[in-house]
Design a protein around this nucleic acid. Structure first.
Lengths: 190, 190
DNA sequence: AGGCTGACTTTGTGATCACAAATAACACAT
DNA sequence: ATGTGTTATTTGTGATCACAAAGTCAGCCT
């Protein structure tokens, strides 16, 4: 999810098992789970790698984000008090620092933390779980294409989100989210 | 997904393994996958059962369906030729027969087949996978509450969907889908 | 130099086992 | 009859193993 792994990276049961000092069995269960969620892909011969997404798949996943995340934000809006907004602003500050260091993994991590912090207020666990599934699928690809992201865009969109939250402006919030989610991913294709 | 299992039903690794004549290991992998998708729930002690959904969860899952499925139908619309519409009409005929027999599992199966047949044309595999995840979570609950479903509603909504498909009416199609998806599930809460 | 065949290694699969935790069953006392 | 303590059984967990398929690599031939 945070882009620690690049697309196409192979993972072996014994290798990961040794890395975390456990046997193959629990690793298998975890891998199978991640394959089921689309976070890892399983070749016909059983080999497991991080997925290499086609442009069409990237666009589709972006469309799903654009569908789910404005809804999550909208549901969080009535419950978004000042304490939450302040926490989001703090996370935004961390994002600025991470961008300054051009730390791709840190950027992905804090950016997702911003979104998750907001969505947790939506009281919609199933919807949030679907969104996280999508993030998981995009992680390696976003890391690989981090250099192409217009990193100046993201903080601006986040500020628009915060402004809409403060104003209680639901349509504005939905638009800000859609544009935050798709502006980042528009850069990724090709 | 088809409601063969009722909510709260317990499943054991050894039991399912014996049923399908295999050892615990592959059963464990399958169960873990289904737990990850929300199709089964894992108690704190590791026991596995089909989920018993709260009213809030049912509403949330219905909201997700209402978000995803109109989008899938809309994407299928430009590619929906007469052959597809005829297949959907045939499935609708089977649904009528199944309702006459009050066959809950058959109803769920054919109803989902109707939706999946349409959505396959959307060329959006990730979005369809998310929709199927939701269906999987709802299966046992829909079966349990099948008696409460207004079974006369569903064929009418399906006819509205088919009419919108024939007319190439995108807004009408989206509305028909939203109402098909939510009218069924509105009955489920309490 | 390039491609092919062979042997060797890596890897996932399914099965089985020991173990501990949790559940179920049961007997007993009140 | 009901609650309680103990015993027996069921159950998931993690580890290990044999096996077959897949992948890798070296050496040889053309």
């Amino acid at each position: 999810m945070h882009g620690e792994l690049l697309p196409g990276q192979a993972l072996t049961l014994r290798g990961v098992g040794k890395e975390y000092d456990m046997s193959m069995t629990p690793v298998r269960e975890a891998m199978r789970r991640l394959v089921a969620e689309g976070a890892l892909s399983l070749s016909s011969s059983g080999r497991i790698t991080t997925p290499e997404l086609s442009n069409e798949r990237i666009e589709e996943l972006a469309a799903i984000r654009a569908l789910l995340e404005p809804e999550l934000a909208s549901r969080a809006l009535p419950r978004a008090h000042m304490a939450l907004i302040e926490r989001l602003e703090a996370i935004n500050g961390q994002i600025d620092q991470v961008i300054a260091r051009s730390d791709a993994v840190g950027y992905l991590k804090h950016n997702l933390e911003f979104h998750r912090t907001l969505y947790l207020r939506a009281q919609a666990p199933a919807m949030l779980a679907l969104a996280e599934t999508v993030w998981l699928q995009l992680g390696p690809t976003m890391r690989k294409l981090y250099g192409r992201l217009r990193r100046t865009e993201s903080p601006r969109n986040h500020r628009l989100i915060l402004a809409a939250l403060k104003a209680g402006d639901d349509p504005g919030l939905r638009i800000a989210l859609r544009s935050d989610v798709t502006s980042g991913l528009r850069m990724l294709k090709q």
